[in-house]
Design a protein around this nucleic acid. Sequence first.
RNA 1: GUGGGCGUGGCCAAGCGGUAAGGCGCCAGGUUGUGGCCCUGGAGAUCGAGGGUUCGAAUCCCUUCGCUCACCCCA
Length: 417
Amino acid sequence: MQFQAPRGTSDVLPEDEAYWSFVRSTAEEVATRFGYHRIDTPAFEDSGLFERGVGSTTDIVEKETYTFEDRGGDMLTLRAEGTAPVCRAYLQHGMQNMTQPVRLFYICPVFRYERPQSGRYRQHTQFGIEVIGEPDASVDAEVIEVGWRFLEQVGLSDLSLTINSIGDPECRPAYIERLRTYYSGHRDSLCEDCERRIDRNALRLLDCKNDQCQPFVDEAPASADHLCSDCDTHWDDLRRYLEATGLDYQVDHRLVRGLDYYTRTVFEIAPPEEGRMVTIVGGGRYDGLIEQLGGRSTPGIGYGMGLERVIQNVKSQNVQLDGSERTRVMVVHLGDAAKTAGVRIASDLRSAGIAATLAPPRGLRAQLRYASNSGATHALIIGADELANGVAALRDLSNSTQEDVPLATIVDSLSQG
RNA sequence: GUGGGCGUGGCCAAGCGGUAAGGCGCCAGGUUGUGGCCCUGGAGAUCGAGGGUUCGAAUCCCUUCGCUCACCCCA
């Protein structure tokens, strides 16, 4: 064993591809049904995009980014998240001149230099959507619904949706002050991390999972209780619209997100799981991001969803995929002349749209074993006798019936099943 | 970045100081041209790597690399 896939990456082997195509295609189907259009952005961007967009003091940018200088001296970063690149594309291509809002979705790899563990990789795949150009809370509810319906359609159940509002530049500073004040009074009872967070990143205090901090988290002032009137209206609207879509949700005042650009709505969807919740979907509103990237003030909202985690849950919940019933023919041959004929017949079958494979040149027994092991539904047996009579023996491997079929009509008899 | 667990043929897995079981899978046979079951045979391992202890190490010690899980953080 010389080379291995780099740490935190993995190969998707043929046996798993069924999950991937299933998940990808339903993602496209659901997003399209909601009126979203696909966008693909490059695998790497100017490093500055993530620094400015995601926030340079954020963990993602501070220590998880794959950054490198190219041969021309430009600093580039592998896509560390999906939203900033889409916003960059929105600005670059003048999408503010399209009818607003613009609805986009993407399915693409994301790279972060993290310590791998279950459900966490250095390269993972995100199915994300963004709605840019509409501040109304109805699109917040819509974005959440897209994620929820997708997970539903992919067969997952028992998921929980939690939401929160973290306000905007209008009201958040005052709230954070209030939070700091509250926590400062309990400084001695907090864990080390939280002690540091009071000054550095007060919002994250609410995120602490340390037991000793839980009492304070529970008692801490909630951002949703300290919104300015615009944010408060938005927050009320969101919940009303969510109820109108029939989604169950929980409000959790501890829910804050790690990226700096979020405003107002933040949400997560997670499976209940034994013990800890591993978030499948995380998202929120980012009304300041486009402006931060040099555009006009433009509202936006979206989510990112980890498809590896989706598949992990699809497997653990034993979702059954539709098995393909496609006819697959193994062309079995005995002797050189038959082999040549087999090559031609296999080729003809494929031209007619029938999946066909020429068996490796072994004994008859071995070829048939190969046929059933590789999942063929039929074996088409050609030997000297068949060649002489201008037929082939078509064997149905599922029920072991077999009959001679004229070479000229093989395609027909196979396409009729 | 911190802490736990683990590294024996493609996969699973015995052995725990005396010179590598077994199972799955793979390949070939089981009399004349027939699969999925069964039977027989075969190929395939420098026991993650390096060093040390010993007459002798997969088995003991040290170092190192890798995988994995949890924390942090996130999808």
